[in-house]
């Protein structure tokens, strides 16, 4: 019978498996923005540094170490070089997460979407988990994926020079780093998003947090105020990441201190999310 003649019918389970709620939320959070062409273009642009680095690695492995004279670790195939590469991707991290993450909860709050979500059989963990996974996916698109591709590329062009370390251990380090830092950054961004109903304000706060603190850190470094570098938001992740990659510290403070700071504001973000995400708005 055609659907338009059927009226309302009760649903009969088909026996197929349902996806968990967090996965459904994350999938929608990733697919919807990627339908915008300019965002897709931004992802492609974020891969340009990886292509450039790939070219340098190719030249080094094939033409000798003359290119090592270049600074910035562009030809390095050591773990530290890949951490530096991810550090260099911070502009794309900043822009990509501002675009895709700012409205994730703010839009739901503005449209009373939380009430819809929490009328379904899902809990706070599913909701936050789905949203964080969305951010981690975009974060990985501009950091983890190019790095893994570079590792595989380097191994393929000169397996004897790079060894299994580049094929297995470095990508594994990058994976762990991206998952942990992406989750923490995602939670902080979501906490900002949960505090407003307008994406634009969340973007402003995100800009202050990333660019503002980096600028303050750079000025403090110039003035010789090393401890003030601790305010650099993304810098803390890179500094703490040196523990995983066995690299020298990026900031004047200990990587362990950076790790403690990161854990601290991640816990704060979780507390804010716990307080702010409710199906009912209570106005005192």
């Amino acid at each position: 019978m055609p659907v338009y003649e059927r009226g309302y019918t009760h649903w009969e389970p088909s026996g197929r498996r349902a996806n968990p709620a967090w996965f459904v939320i994350a999938r929608r959070g990733v697919i919807e923005p990627l339908r915008r062409r300019w965002l897709f273009l931004l992802v492609v642009m974020s891969w340009i540094p990886a292509i450039v680095k790939g070219g340098f690695i190719y030249a080094k492995l094939k033409a000798g170490n003359i290119l090592d004279l270049m600074g910035g670790g562009w030809t390095s195939i050591e773990p530290e070089g890949f951490l530096k590469f991810m550090e260099g991707q911070r502009f794309f991290v900043f822009v990509m997460l501002a675009i895709t993450g700012a409205g994730l909860i703010a839009a739901d709050r503005r449209e009373n979407g939380l009430s819809l979500y929490f009328s379904r059989p899902l809990g706070l963990l599913d909701y936050i988990g789905g949203k964080v996974l969305t951010i981690v996916t975009f974060y990985s698109l501009v950091t983890l994926l190019p790095v893994v591709a570079l590792c595989v590329f380097s191994y393929l062009i000169a397996p004897e020079a790079t060894g299994a370390n580049l094929l297995l251990l470095t990508p594994l380090r990058c994976l762990v780093y991206c998952l942990l830092s992406g989750t923490s950054i995602g939670l902080v961004l979501l906490a900002f998003s949960s505090m407003g109903t307008r994406s634009i304000f969340v973007m402003v706060w995100w800009t202050v947090l990333v660019s503002g603190t980096e600028t303050i850190g750079a000025i403090a470094k110039g003035l010789g105020q090393d401890t003030l570098q601790a305010v650099n938001f993304l810098g803390q992740y890179h500094n703490a990441g040196t523990l995983l990659f066995g690299a020298p510290a990026r900031l004047a403070i200990s990587p362990w201190a950076s790790l403690a700071i990161v854990i601290g504001w991640t816990a704060l973000a979780l507390w804010v999310l716990r307080k702010r995400i409710r199906p009912v708005e209570v106005v005192s």
């Binding site: 649903w11 389970p13 088909s14 197929r16 498996r17 349902a18 996806n19 709620a21 459904v24 939320i25 929608r28 919807e32 839009a107 739901d108 503005r110 449209e111 009373n112 979407g113 009430s115 819809l116 979500y117 379904r120 059989p121 899902l122």
Partner: peptide, 27 residues
């Protein structure tokens, strides 16, 4: 009030809510 998530088509929104309610994707 509200309850319409912007940026989605009607059918995508309803299917999304169905999935969140525990329905398999195709169902």
């Amino acid at each position: 009030r509200g309850g319409v998530i912007p940026g989605m088509s009607g059918v995508a929104l309803v299917a999304y809510m169905g999935e969140l309610s525990g329905l398999p994707s195709r169902d």
